[in-house]
Amino acid sequence: AEEIWQQSVIGDYLARFKNDRVKALKAMEMTWNNMEKKEKLMWIKKAAED
């Protein structure tokens, strides 16, 4: 689920960090860890469908 979420937001994060992939990935990891369980559930369901 986290991978699907990352694939959907990586472009936004890379743009925000001027294509600094290391910073973008760290920010994504922090965002994922801070997400509410119900927000993650949507992505977990999406992962299950694929």
Rank of each mutant, 00 (worst) to 15 (best):
47 A>V: 06
28 M>T: 01
34 N>R: 09
34 N>V: 06
16 R>L: 13
44 I>E: 15
43 W>Q: 02
45 K>M: 11
20 D>K: 02
32 W>Y: 01
5 W>D: 00
28 M>A: 03
1 A>G: 14
8 S>D: 06
50 D>E: 14
17 F>L: 03
1 A>S: 04
33 N>E: 11
14 L>M: 09
40 K>I: 04
3 E>L: 14
43 W>D: 02
21 R>G: 06
26 K>T: 07
39 E>N: 04
11 G>I: 13
7 Q>H: 08
22 V>N: 11
12 D>F: 11
44 I>A: 11
22 V>F: 11
39 E>V: 06
46 K>H: 06
10 I>A: 04
30 M>F: 14
26 K>C: 07
40 K>N: 02
44 I>D: 05
49 E>F: 08
34 N>M: 10
5 W>E: 01
32 W>R: 00
29 E>P: 00
26 K>W: 08
49 E>H: 09
32 W>H: 01
50 D>F: 15
3 E>N: 10
22 V>I: 13
48 A>V: 09
39 E>I: 06
2 E>P: 15
35 M>A: 01
34 N>H: 08
39 E>F: 05
41 L>K: 05
19 N>A: 06
39 E>H: 05
10 I>F: 10
37 K>W: 15
28 M>R: 00
16 R>E: 08
23 K>D: 05
20 D>P: 00
2 E>M: 15
37 K>V: 15
13 Y>V: 03
45 K>P: 03
15 A>G: 08
30 M>C: 08
35 M>Q: 01
31 T>A: 15
46 K>Q: 06
17 F>Y: 13
43 W>T: 01
37 K>L: 15
47 A>F: 11
17 F>R: 01
6 Q>L: 07
10 I>H: 03
39 E>S: 03
49 E>Q: 09
11 G>D: 13
25 L>N: 06
38 K>G: 12
7 Q>L: 14
38 K>N: 14
25 L>Q: 10
48 A>Q: 14
16 R>P: 01
12 D>M: 10
37 K>Y: 15
45 K>V: 09
39 E>R: 03
19 N>C: 14
48 A>G: 09
11 G>F: 11
20 D>T: 01
18 K>L: 10
11 G>P: 05
8 S>V: 09
30 M>L: 13
5 W>M: 00
43 W>N: 02
14 L>V: 03
31 T>Y: 14
44 I>Q: 12
9 V>N: 05
5 W>L: 00
47 A>Q: 05
44 I>R: 04
29 E>T: 09
30 M>W: 14
17 F>C: 05
17 F>A: 04
25 L>Y: 13
15 A>M: 13
24 A>L: 03
45 K>R: 08
32 W>G: 00
36 E>A: 11
14 L>C: 08
29 E>Y: 07
30 M>I: 13
4 I>F: 15
43 W>A: 03
8 S>M: 08
11 G>A: 15
50 D>N: 15
5 W>Q: 00
42 M>P: 08
23 K>Y: 04
16 R>G: 03
39 E>L: 06
5 W>C: 01
14 L>E: 02
36 E>F: 03
40 K>W: 03
35 M>L: 04
6 Q>I: 12
24 A>T: 04
23 K>T: 09
32 W>K: 00
24 A>Y: 01
21 R>L: 12
39 E>D: 10
31 T>F: 12
12 D>N: 08
50 D>G: 14
45 K>A: 15
49 E>V: 08
50 D>I: 15
37 K>H: 15
1 A>C: 05
20 D>H: 04
31 T>S: 09
7 Q>T: 08
23 K>S: 11
19 N>S: 07
27 A>S: 05
5 W>A: 00
20 D>N: 08
12 D>V: 10
13 Y>N: 01
11 G>K: 13
22 V>S: 11
5 W>H: 00
46 K>A: 10
24 A>K: 00
40 K>S: 01
4 I>P: 02
14 L>Q: 02
45 K>D: 09
36 E>Y: 03
46 K>F: 10
23 K>C: 07
9 V>S: 03
40 K>G: 01
40 K>Q: 06
6 Q>W: 06
27 A>W: 06
42 M>Y: 15
9 V>R: 03
17 F>G: 01
24 A>M: 06
32 W>N: 00
17 F>W: 07
47 A>C: 05
2 E>L: 14
3 E>P: 05
24 A>D: 00
23 K>F: 05
49 E>A: 11
29 E>M: 09
29 E>L: 11
18 K>Q: 14
46 K>L: 13
11 G>Y: 11
23 K>L: 14
10 I>T: 03
34 N>I: 05
17 F>H: 07
27 A>V: 06
18 K>S: 12
36 E>R: 05
2 E>R: 12
13 Y>R: 01
44 I>Y: 12
16 R>F: 11
18 K>M: 14
18 K>H: 13
48 A>R: 11
24 A>N: 00
2 E>F: 15
16 R>K: 10
3 E>W: 15
1 A>M: 07
35 M>G: 01
33 N>K: 13
35 M>Y: 02
11 G>S: 12
25 L>P: 00
22 V>Y: 09
49 E>C: 11
14 L>Y: 03
37 K>N: 12
6 Q>H: 07
43 W>L: 03
15 A>V: 12
34 N>Q: 09
18 K>Y: 12
4 I>M: 15
9 V>W: 02
27 A>L: 05
48 A>H: 09
50 D>V: 15
1 A>N: 03
41 L>E: 15
9 V>Y: 04
10 I>K: 04
40 K>R: 06
37 K>P: 15
3 E>H: 12
20 D>Y: 02
27 A>G: 04
29 E>I: 10
50 D>P: 07
33 N>L: 12
41 L>N: 07
46 K>G: 04
28 M>P: 00
46 K>E: 06
36 E>D: 15
35 M>P: 00
12 D>Q: 10
19 N>H: 08
4 I>G: 04
23 K>I: 08
26 K>F: 09
31 T>V: 12
22 V>A: 11
24 A>I: 04
20 D>C: 04
13 Y>P: 00
5 W>G: 00
49 E>D: 10
17 F>Q: 01
48 A>E: 12
43 W>C: 02
9 V>H: 05
14 L>S: 02
28 M>W: 00
25 L>H: 07
13 Y>W: 04
27 A>T: 04
2 E>T: 05
42 M>Q: 13
19 N>G: 14
48 A>F: 13
32 W>D: 00
8 S>F: 14
22 V>Q: 13
2 E>V: 11
28 M>Y: 01
15 A>L: 14
7 Q>G: 05
41 L>G: 06
1 A>D: 03
21 R>D: 04
43 W>S: 02
40 K>C: 03
49 E>S: 09
31 T>M: 08
14 L>T: 03
35 M>T: 01
11 G>V: 11
10 I>R: 04
29 E>G: 07
16 R>T: 07
9 V>E: 02
7 Q>D: 09
12 D>H: 11
48 A>C: 15
32 W>I: 00
12 D>Y: 09
49 E>Y: 08
22 V>C: 13
14 L>H: 02
5 W>K: 00
29 E>S: 12
